[in-house]
Simulated scan of single mutants.
Amino acid sequence: MSKTSSTLHERQSSNGTADSGSTGEDIILECRDLSVAFEMDRGTSRVLHNVDIDIRRGEIIGIVGESGSGKSMFASALLNAVVDPGKTSGTVTYHPSDDESDPVDVLGLDKGPLRTLRWEDISMVFQGAMSSFNPTMDFREHFVETLDAHDYDVVEGIERAEELLADLYLDPDRVLDSYPHELSGGMKQRALIALALVLEPEVLVMDEPTAALDLLMQRSIISLLSDLRDKYDLTMVFITHDLPLVTKLADRIGVLYAFEFAEVGNTAEMVENPRHPYTRALLNATPNLDAPLSEMRPIEGSAPDPVNVPAGCPYHERCPMATADCEDVKPPMELVTDTHEVACHHWRDVDDEVPLSVGVER
């Protein structure tokens, strides 16, 4: 599949700052004012709010945050897959690599084209491999069903499935002739990744793909994903609560807090020089063999209620740096460097106010 560069002008965001990565980068997915909300008896539950981000072709971007921060909703919104009664607004624009193809308004697609896009262009690996498979079908049937549904040549598709399974260090013959209950959790997860890639999508979105696996298998899959990106020229969006894990895979990291991005930057800067006090709190709460237990700091307080997100900076009620401005004025996204942006009024003072303990090993 040929790749081509799409030229984008530098966009000024609604808060007056330029989006990092949008100046001449080859963008494959653009999100603008992306929001997800659920109407409830006690009010509107805001589970993703006015998110602006560009995802670059060929990169691996890690999306991290606490449980309930909006990570899974962001993943679902990228594919217009938020279930009713959730309402998705804003825009998600997909830029195919094909020279002759126009940009695709993902949220505006009818059911048929959307179904095609979800497997053939942007594919997703959901949490929990076991629940993704029909227990009465062997894996070969799963692959054949997917290929048939999209009018792909089954013989060629199974050959690709065999190659993908081998790339993931699985025995293709054994896996294809096995039922889900006959494989371990790690094997099922790798088979699910192969199934998600069998139609040759450009983008792979993964929602906590290693959450139920032991540490050794997590590290193994992380290494395999990096190899797959290089071999198949993939773009990956990796959703996780595990910040140390994603630093070993991602080119960039976006930190979600209260359904918005608090900080986005390349991985080295995010680990070595985070500017948002929440990112620093995540790093300081991470177990590290090189840091004494006394230096670990749990994040005090709890994330905001999605029906009642505070005014101003959504982190101010838990932030040791909060001032009156933080309570009243929402901080804009500001560029720290050309590859790093943060939404914090006091990011220049964070070194003194929220010092880092021993950093995360990359």
Rank of each mutant, 00 (worst) to 15 (best):
G185R: 07
G185H: 07
G186C: 06
M187E: 03
M187A: 00
Q189K: 03
Q189W: 02
Q189Y: 03
R190W: 01
L192G: 12
L192D: 13
A194W: 00
A196K: 00
A196H: 01
A196R: 00
A196T: 00
V198Y: 00
E200R: 08
E200F: 03
P201N: 04
P201E: 04
P201C: 08
E202M: 02
E202W: 01
E202P: 00
E202D: 10
L204R: 06
L204M: 06
L204D: 04
L204T: 04
M206R: 02
A212N: 02
A212W: 00
A212Q: 01
L213E: 03
L213S: 02
D214E: 05
L215A: 15
L216D: 13
L216W: 12
M217V: 15
M217S: 09
Q218S: 08
S220L: 15
S220D: 14
I221P: 06
I222T: 03
S223K: 15
S223I: 11
L224M: 09
L225H: 05
L225D: 07
S226D: 14
D227F: 13
K231P: 13
D233H: 13
D233S: 13
D233P: 11
T235F: 11
T235V: 13
T235Q: 10
T235A: 12
I239H: 01
I239C: 07
T240P: 11
T240W: 13
D242L: 12
D242I: 13
L243Y: 11
L243C: 10
P244H: 11
P244N: 11
T247A: 15
T247D: 11
A250F: 09
A250D: 08
D251N: 14
D251E: 07
R252G: 14
R252F: 15
I253E: 13
I253M: 12
I253L: 13
V255G: 10
V255E: 09
L256V: 04
L256Q: 02
L256W: 03
L256I: 08
